[in-house]
Design a protein around this nucleic acid. Sequence first.
DNA 1: GGCAGATAATGAACGCCGTTCACCATCGCG
DNA 2: CGCGATGGTGAACGGCGTTCATTATCTGCC
Lengths: 207, 207
Amino acid sequence: MARRSEHTREQLRDLMLEAAEQLIVDKGLAGLSARAIARQIGYTPGTIYLVFANLDELILHVNARTLDRLRVPMQAAVAATDDPEQQLLGAARAYADFARSHPNLWRACFEHRLPEDVAGPDFIDARIAQLVELIMAPLARVSGAQGAALNAAAQSLWSGVHGVCILTLTGKLHTVGGQATEHLTDDLITHYLAGLVSRAAPTTSRG
Amino acid sequence: MARRSEHTREQLRDLMLEAAEQLIVDKGLAGLSARAIARQIGYTPGTIYLVFANLDELILHVNARTLDRLRVPMQAAVAATDDPEQQLLGAARAYADFARSHPNLWRACFEHRLPEDVAGPDFIDARIAQLVELIMAPLARVSGAQGAALNAAAQSLWSGVHGVCILTLTGKLHTVGGQATEHLTDDLITHYLAGLVSRAAPTTSRG
DNA sequence: GGCAGATAATGAACGCCGTTCACCATCGCG
DNA sequence: CGCGATGGTGAACGGCGTTCATTATCTGCC
């Protein structure tokens, strides 16, 4: 058994990513294994290493796909209105909605941990940057901020929305009267924006 | 070889938690294994299962300890001043500082995933609730909020701070001009508070 | 002192895991 | 037809979490 050439390297790559994605969807990152992927596509585990350097790299590519898909509804939310505050609220709701609809895929993007020293690849960093950039324009319009202050605002606000999603959707926020995710993202954004508008970006324009 | 009785069940428990903690500190959650713990304390893996139901339970107890230790500097920050805004900023900085000083322990609290259906135990939920409650009083004083609105504020603001810490400390926010963690938590809190003060908690007082 | 029963701990075993690599079946080409 | 290149294999290595029959030791009783 060798040299069957039923698939191109490219086709094989897609088959593997597809299978991996399905496994993550069904059983989470923990349910993913080289052997399971191989079983699913009718190859042996060794074949995976002809296409990817290791499982981590494969997972990173699944995550890249997930981030690409996540961007679509967020962009749509931004395009759906001209009111910058509504754009931000909509993008956050789209984010929360995606996370809730595809919990295992979404969590894989943030739970997957590379070995201590290895840095995340550029193609992931770039996609996260795209998400942050999505909210820069509305944020600039609504607050008049720019430069470093705008950057800080985009990062802190977006990290904040992400934090709300993480904690609520992983059930780590079972506090008194646990709030719905969107309720909390709305709360965070509304108040943050109100503060941003009422002040001239105090913390970052000091130096 | 059996029945050495060199240690009480309690002592054994502490030995195991200590060893597990050290392993997590040194190599992260991924570096933890029943065999490694056993090796470190001079017992065999089987012994661990006389004390804990499984590794997950052991890890949850390590996490409980971590959350207890995390609360100390946060409480100190709140006690250090009477200005509620400074209390909140201080608590967030203490949180970020702890996360940076003990990255692997801190991350273990949020990266550890239980099998799909199993819910997190109360002794973890309670400790997270304690952290959120820490900021309720200052938040109430600074904004005048109470009831559900106060609850939502505490949860969204604290989740936000957590999100900032997660994304900056795991290196997932390598965007243009990456900001220091404390810079972003300050930014988030300052603006959120300003917004909270300038408005009468709009999103939650509507119904 | 000697013996029985209780029990703390073992260690071998099961079925997984990621990863490597010598090997071989098959292909295209001369 | 033969041959070199190559796609893919599958066995192997050292790890993992977890279970459990077995055993060495302790305790209490005669």
